[in-house]
Design a protein around this nucleic acid. Sequence first.
DNA 1: TTTATTCATTAACGCGCGTTAGTTGACGCG
DNA 2: CGCGTCAACTAACGCGCGTTAATGAATAAA
Lengths: 346, 346
Amino acid sequence: MAEKRVTSQDVADLAGVSRTTVSFVLNNDSRFSIRPETQEKVREAALSLGYVPNASARALASNQAKAVGLVMTRDIQYIGSDLFLPQIIGGLLDSFKLYGLSLLIEWVEPGQQLETYHKLTRAKHIDGMILTVSRDDDSGLKVLEDSDVPAVLMGTVPGCKLHSVDIDNVLSARKAVEHLLSLGHRRIACITDARLPYSSASQRLEGYKQALQAAGIEPDDCLIRYGDFDSESGYMAMASLLIKKLDFTATFAGSDNVAFGAMEAAREAGLSIPRDMAFVGHDDIPLARFAQPPLTTIHVPADEIARKSCQMLLQLMNDEAPEHNHILIETELVSRSSTQAAGRSL
Amino acid sequence: MAEKRVTSQDVADLAGVSRTTVSFVLNNDSRFSIRPETQEKVREAALSLGYVPNASARALASNQAKAVGLVMTRDIQYIGSDLFLPQIIGGLLDSFKLYGLSLLIEWVEPGQQLETYHKLTRAKHIDGMILTVSRDDDSGLKVLEDSDVPAVLMGTVPGCKLHSVDIDNVLSARKAVEHLLSLGHRRIACITDARLPYSSASQRLEGYKQALQAAGIEPDDCLIRYGDFDSESGYMAMASLLIKKLDFTATFAGSDNVAFGAMEAAREAGLSIPRDMAFVGHDDIPLARFAQPPLTTIHVPADEIARKSCQMLLQLMNDEAPEHNHILIETELVSRSSTQAAGRSL
DNA sequence: TTTATTCATTAACGCGCGTTAGTTGACGCG
DNA sequence: CGCGTCAACTAACGCGCGTTAATGAATAAA
């Protein structure tokens, strides 16, 4: 029950040395050479007392919090449907463990960007941050560019100078749509993975249009719908497409989440997938393989994104210059039955 | 670019008062009366300097970190498939915002429980913790019971005295299986949502057995498989059941995640759902409604669990005694088409 | 023997803040 | 005028640690 707090002074007393020596030993400070037997004494004392350094005191004295913030900007009601979040967190935790870093989850209230970013950079409880910012209109990124807190953007914001890791959304979407084109589809609908201020949505939409134009097809605005972060939005969008009798044979959904909803709407309308309507998603969430039919989609390696972001951030935190300012991760089409009865790869 | 750090002394100087006064004003300390015009001066100075208190210094001086840890114990490769995590995080962030609390994600390496818990309670960088511990054999919980750091267990560990919030897993599973029984199924298989050391798995399995026994059916071990946290395990388990020609007509999957995999295996075997094989899942993840056919499942209100856990933790952190030591949240069967062609509720 | 050099260790300061125990001046009361 | 009372504010300490400059002891060089 609540034993007295143990400080480094206690360890020093027990080991019969000064507090300074304790600090040098426990931090493995190689600039000072401590005799091995002294080190042993100190370590033993620390262990027997169950000494754990006070994180706040250490942060204050060393001016390093040993913590990184994962900054979320998505509206809070959509955080729950962010199927990438666990993968990102898992990847970050895995990487941080090696460096003894803690992971803070920070949430930026919409409309409070300036203030929140300012606080994050000044409160000094994080040494660096990974941003899942994704809105083109995020007004606060400038604050971060001007601050000296290392930051890596997990995504893309046009004109933003921060270091970043992302996939090439335009290219990914093109791949998805080109797959449909290669199967002979000409009238292809698109449901975005979010509303437009979110850059992934506008970029994937752009890729969709580029693929069509490259095939000599003029994009038809009637075949475009704007989804959101959840499956419901995909369901609604598909329903609204179907009711118009637009005579299309395939749909590109900007996210698997949206695709799940859209496919359900199609099935309820009595359509057979992929015979009457082919579907391509995006992201390759773990459940995509278990959709009915299994969903053709673009594989996004979330773990790699997390790892690279982390690596980049660590470099910045060590004042090393990363090789590249912006890293693009390769994505890959995974062909399953939602586009062709036989689920073989291209 | 990296303006000089602003401290409360700077604010004091600009406002022409002492640092103490600044502290009183900015912390709204009502024990001391500061003249309104002085308060105004201080606030103005703080604002114009963009002053943000240093979190570490504040934590050190006040002995409060203003942070809560969400402690994960799941193997790291399964964190990515934890579909509840985003909902939990969203719920916590929502609650914490009001109190100015930060959220730390802590990961406990398997086999390191004692050491990690000890560190967590002693490093003082969190004032309280929410544990997603779920293994019956977690050896470190005792450390937490003996510590004076408030902790709430999100789940159930038999014999653990910590405060907790959970669903009644046994009852939930009973509800699921009783639903199948009420539809006339007698031979019902069970695939657990995890391996047995995880308490939710053993408890749901127990509920499955109880439901059968209450209906006068002796559980048949041949019809039981042990799944894991991902859909693949459900797929494998179902495949292994089907290959044995066990002559069963329904399956209770311990999680929707597992159910998705199991349903895919059934479909690949040429079975029609629900005609040849009915399925009930558990959890009601957002995608359950969009499975094919839409999945009958037990709705688990993740947001409510998060909210209640948070509320309980805040009470403990304020030295208030929560009304109950263990809270059980109600779950509810959501009847969809995977158990009956017409998806009406019972 | 004296002087430089290294090794092992420590005293003491400061990080930025919360907080306690004061100090100061104004006011009322007998 | 003397004495408390109270509002308004401040000086100074300590939280636990990292770190610099200094100290003493031991060894090598002169």
